[in-house]
């Protein structure tokens, strides 16, 4: 297992080795490429990203002060919001015209900053609903159990495997509404994995998670990279970012201000200014 771990990290590091630390830097093998993405709410320009490429198979952290536009950018990329302009490609396909469910089906699956557990459904049901392209989800096939029972059993087996991994297996028959905030975060992530995504986008996955769970969540995210998945996640805690990210993109006031390895970013004066500026603004309020 530890050899595998090294393989994934090594590949990601190698792919990003020669990439210059500047906003919009081209990547060796970008799974996501976005250009000129802009979203304004009335007069407020929430997102205005000139160009960004996300390296396939790497863990990329998206950081930036509160209100920088990270969540809005996620919403745009995943079809939950429409940009004023801009275009992007995911895995070689135009994705900016897709509806949110089509984006998810094409392999780019997101989680939400405010967790969206399906409260009055069990943990297992939450997982099963995540499985993609189920025959039993078609109206015409639904009443005929024999058409989908086998598929359902396979999905359930996969769901239980994932729940095992996320330490939620003993909660399988509990309502999702009964879980703690941290457990819901885990459930949401596990549920997203039911779709077998190529890229998973996690909006503040660590927020509200207790330190013990946090560590295991970090391990899970690292495991995803070993499985060849691309991870883009929003996080505030630079220590966390240092620990797992191969690459860091920094947003401030809607723009991508810089990119680089975690070490490069920590040393970047613009990043420090952006955060300090935000704190400074906040202090004035």
């Amino acid at each position: 297992m530890s050899d595998d771990v090294k393989a994934g990290v090594a590949a990601a590091k190698a792919a990003l080795a020669g990439v210059p630390a500047e906003p919009g830097a081209p990547k060796q093998d970008a799974i996501l490429t976005a250009t000129g993405v802009r979203r304004a709410f009335g007069g407020l320009v929430a997102v205005d990203v000139a160009h960004i490429e996300v390296q396939r198979g790497a863990i990329t952290a998206l950081i930036g002060p509160n209100g920088a536009g990270k969540t809005t950018f996620f919403n745009l990329l995943t079809g939950f919001d429409r940009p004023s302009r801009g275009s992007w490609e995911f895995d070689g396909r135009r994705a900016d015209r897709m509806r949110s469910y089509q984006v998810a089906r094409s392999g780019m699956v997101r989680t939400f900053q405010l967790t969206k557990a399906l409260s009055r459904m069990t943990v297992l049901e939450n997982m099963l609903i995540g499985a993609d392209r189920q025959r039993g989800e078609r109206l015409w096939a639904a009443p005929f159990r024999w058409l989908w029972l086998k598929e359902e059993a396979q999905n359930a087996a996969r769901a239980l495997d994932l729940l095992e991994r996320f330490k939620l297996a003993d909660k399988r028959d509990h309502y999702a509404g009964e879980l703690s905030g941290g457990q819901r975060k885990l459930l949401e992530m596990a549920r997203a994995l039911m779709l077998k995504p190529k890229m998973i986008m996690l909006d503040e996955p660590m927020a509200g998670v207790n330190p013990a769970l946090k560590q295991s969540l970090l391990e899970h995210i690292k495991d995803l990279r070993e499985e060849g998945m691309t991870v883009l996640f929003v996080e505030h805690d630079m220590d966390m970012v240092h620990e797992i990210a191969d690459w860091v993109a920094v947003m401030a006031a809607g723009q991508l201000i810089t990119e680089g390895t975690p070490d490069q970013i920590s040393a970047d004066q613009r990043v420090i200014d952006a955060y300090l500026g935000a704190h400074h603004d906040a202090a004035q309020h």
Partner: peptide
């Protein structure tokens, strides 16, 4: 329960 969540799961 939450239609956005279901949408995010490709439905």
């Amino acid at each position: 329960e939450d239609e956005e969540a279901v949408r995010s799961l490709g439905k």
